[in-house]
Design a protein around this nucleic acid. Structure first.
Lengths: 329, 329
DNA sequence: CTGAAAGCGCTTACAG
DNA sequence: CTGAAAGCGCTTACAG
């Protein structure tokens, strides 16, 4: 059995309350007393039991993170950003994967509540009424990350996806592209669907060019390549492609190469994200660079503010993005 | 305030102990009584407080995971495997990144102990005496994942790295390679260093071929490419390359292309891991395929056995690997 | 500046 | 099959 606060108190000849005070710095303690306590802690090798502390204080110093899938590089990088800031503020994280399944998401919110986390960082494809209700019921502070509540009822961290898609489209148009294909995520996805499609279409309309959208079942390379191979012969052959993820961007490049189309000479490709994959393929991908790590970090930083009731002016964060030009355009 | 077990007991007209029993199934409860309790739980929307439960039972249903960096795809996939099995057994995970820094690793073990996790899954580059001592002190069950204690004092899940490197080398030799370069991790790394170098050298010696090892500061693409570019003119130009990670494999391919060497015609490349990157580059990578997800899953499954004191025969798991042949060889 | 005591919300022998 | 009560290891008013 390891030492408890009671053992420390006895060893130091003080009360438990005093030990607690020097541990947490919640009140002034005479230097002399403090030293006795610190010595006792030292000799006993005492470490406070966070569970007991959590029960007594109703704060667990733990943040729940719900994401679709950590094994996706975009997500993993974001989670890393969250974790680093959590560490900085002495929080730990409980990580869960939802596979973007609505019922699993709801479930996980319940689990997070049972674990008494101090807050939840959430990434998912949609913010439904049921989800909102689950958060409401759990009475937990929530921050969305790379996830949007169209009604803006929950704080969130994103880039301006609509504008970014618009910019990407403009970029290709200015490069002379006339037949720009948009490789989209599911159109009801609040991030990689609707807003980006809108930005794309707005730019095309302004330029008097025809839109052509292909919706991928996922943002993964394999699915993108499969879909492109199946549909390449029945679509207008593009001279420009905008992909909503780097993996889809790579899929586009390879689909073109397989169809004997040179990238970037005959087809220019730009993708969203700028994960590390973008520089690991040839030609290197031109991307809409998202500050992925920072998005996670900002979300977690904001969470710590919510928890500590610091007054927060901003609510819906729009982080800057930029077009990183490489060899694919 | 949300309902407590006391509220449920009163609502159902039974004692807290009885509520606890139906909740945990720790004793037989009359059907009629059970129904009353279940109804009360339903109407109050009661969910047990896991923190209180943890304090009382001394089991938190939480597993700590310490990894160098979740944002590395290999790690992320492994973590996903761990999480899935944890979910299956009703455990949650606390995830922490050590950046492979020894002091940080020790620190994290302390934190995990404070959080009263039921066990720790650990991935790191080395198992030092200090680390072992920290685990000892924390009195936590530990399972190493893709990490080796040379003395075998801690259960672990790995592939046979020595044999795998031997096989990879044999594979290239049989393809006719005479000048095989080994792109290694730091040589004191217990997984990507020593054992793989040994397997490589053994195969070369058997074939009477000269070894040539390049040690990379990290397993990342950027670092590998940089190192190769700097040293390509001062080494024997290889006709075969074995890389200890897929990223280094891609770096090797690109370094060759930049030096006007055709892959696989003039240089054959094989890498370790078979992360998804392997199929996202051209030519697609031939790899020593590791069951990454499964390694995480097996480690977590073994942990649940340790926790429940199921008698465990095996201790040091050697999962199967295979050579997946693609276009780079 | 310090202590005594209640309480956080559960589980778990111990009785019956 | 069920209940009363102690206890898990802390924090936090409340007193002084």
């Amino acid at each position: 059995m390891s030492a408890t606060i009671y053992d420390v108190a006895r060893e130091a000849g003080v009360s438990m309350a005093t030990v607690s005070r020097v541990l947490n710095g919640t009140a002034v303690v005479k230097d002399e007393t403090k030293k006795k306590v610190l010595d006792a802690i030292q000799t006993l090798g005492y470490r406070p039991n966070a569970v007991a502390r959590g029960l007594a204080s109703k704060k667990t110093k733990t943040i729940g993170i719900i994401v679709p899938d950590v094994s996706a590089p975009f997500v993993a990088e974001m989670v890393r950003g969250m974790e680093d800031i959590a560490t900085m503020y002495n929080y730990q994280i409980i990580l869960s994967n939802s596979d973007a399944q609505a019922d699993r998401e709801i479930d996980l919110i319940g689990t997070m509540w049972e674990k008494q986390v101090d807050g939840v960082l959430f990434m998912g494809s949609q913010v439904t009424e049921e989800l909102l209700q689950a958060f409401e019921q759990a009475q937990l502070p929530v921050v969305l990350c790379s996830t949007i509540d169209p009604e803006g009822r929950i704080p969130s961290v994103n880039i301006d996806n609509r504008q970014a898609a618009f910019d990407a489209t403009r970029f290709l148009i200015e490069k002379g592209c006339k037949r720009i294909l948009f490789l989209s995520g599911s159109s009801d996805h609040a991030v990689v669907g609707t807003p980006r499609q809108e930005g794309y279409q707005k730019a095309l309309k302004q330029a008097g060019l025809p839109p052509q959208i292909l919706e991928c079942p996922s943002l993964r390379y394999e699915d993108g390549l499969k879909m492109l191979r199946e549909s390449f012969h029945q679509i207008v052959v593009p001279d420009g492609v905008i992909a909503v993820s780097d993996e889809l961007g790579v899929a586009a490049i390879h689909a073109c190469l397989d169809a004997k189309l040179q990238v970037p000479d005959q087809v220019k490709v730009i993708s969203f994200d700028n994960t590390r994959l973008a520089v690991m393929v040839r030609p290197e991908l031109t991307t809409i660079s998202q500050p992925i790590y920072d998005m996670g970090a900002v979300a977690m930083r904001f969470m710590t503010k919510l928890i500590h009731h610091e007054n927060v002016e901003e609510y819906s964060f729009r982080l800057p993005y930029e077009i990183t030009v490489r060899k694919s355009t």
